[in-house]
Amino acid sequence: MFRYILKRFAQFIPVFIGVTLLLFFITTILPGDPVALRAGEKKLSPAVYAEMRHAFGLDKPWYVQYVNYLGDLTQGDLGTSIASGRKVEVIFKETYPYTLKLALAAITLEILVGIGAGLISAIKQYTFWDTLVTLSTSILVALPVFWLGIMLQYVFGIQLHILPISGASSARFSDFAHLVLPAITLASVSTAYAARIMRSQLLEVQSQDYVRTAYAKGLSPTRVLWGHEMKNALIPVVTFVGLDLGAMLSGAILTETIFNWPGVGFTIYKAIGQRDFPVVFGGVTIVLFAVLFVNLLVDVSYAFLDPRIRFGDASEG
């Protein structure tokens, strides 16, 4: 198990270097100057401008900047924001909890509604409920997320005035109320997929020989479902939901931007606009580690569900 985690970490290093290197390279060809953007309207004197570029290491070639970034990273230092002058670690320490909160809310919704709907749909195959689930998931999958977000804002915020449409807290609404619309928006498409995977997996499992064996033992349909079918059917669902959680923990740029949600995605989005590269790199670094962590978690739970998968086997990776 420990060796397996080490191995996964070793596999992660080239991915990490590849992604960050690409990102550094892109910043060199991106138009816009962070120092000038920070100054805004007022003109900087050439001396001050040069000094600021030097202070942020921007006067060096990009590969030197990259080596410096890696060096600082090993010290746990993600650098300083050009736009605000604050430490990047501090910025993400503040924003990450919002991303985490939104991701957990969305994944809870996805698990409860997605798996629940898929389950009902499969058990009541070809009934009204099955049709309802099949139809609504087809529609959800096809809807653009930003459109759904904006429609929710319009209906529940602007027309009905029952839910806030922006930010994570306000005097008028509870923090929970602030979470509702972003969580629904973020979870929508994946919930539909989760429901469909759950449904098709369960239907497939139901025709397996071992399910016939379970019935031949004299088990009731409920016992067969929970004691024999679910664990098998859940394996692909867990993989999907897990990978999705990884994506959500990386900050949902679209959803966070629509709802001004002060999480990692929104922060990175703003930082890109300001060419605030230390914040962008810091955000991407955190996101990469979050994805690594979640993927590990998925693999571990996968092995827990499926005994045919064991750690330490050379053929796995």
Binding site: Q208, Y210, T213, H228, K231, N232, D306, R308
Partner: peptide, 8 residues
């Protein structure tokens, strides 16, 4: 295939 792969 007659035994459930995920139970002992």
């Amino acid at each position: 295939t007659s035994l459930n792969p995920v139970y002992r």
